[in-house]
């Protein structure tokens, strides 16, 4: 394999890894941290819901959906810039 391709792959993988780490940090916060403090959040109100309850029935779920869509747009960009898009 050519040296260029190896370097391009290393750069591409570095950027992919960084994006994945950021996504997983957000995932961790909305999967676990937020719900650990459900009691404290319930003191606040959002759209008429106690906030802690809201996060478990909708908030975290919406974050997950948006997170995956945004991640895929950014990952597409990383792939395109590395010249690794398939189409």
């Amino acid at each position: 394999m050519s040296q260029d391709k190896t370097e391009a792959r290393a750069r591409h993988w570095m950027r992919t890894k960084n994006l994945t780490i950021v996504v997983l940090i957000l995932w961790f916060i909305f999967s676990f941290v937020v719900h650990w403090f459900a009691n404290e959040l319930n003191a606040a109100s959002f759209l008429g819901f106690p906030l802690g309850y809201y996060m478990a029935v909708q908030g975290s779920l919406i974050v997950f959906v948006v997170l995956i869509f945004v991640q895929n747009v950014l990952q597409d960009k990383i792939d395109d810039e590395a010249g690794f898009s398939e189409e």
């Binding site: 994945t20 999967s31 719900h35 478990a56 997950f64 959906v65 995956i68 990952q75």
Partner: peptide, 24 residues
């Protein structure tokens, strides 16, 4: 009640792992 909502969060958040770590 609230304890059961762990299923709701778990069964959606799992897809972040599928997308980040596995599927592609």
């Amino acid at each position: 009640g609230h304890g059961y909502l762990a299923f709701v969060v778990g069964w959606t958040g799992g897809y972040v792992l599928v997308n980040s770590l596995m599927a592609p």
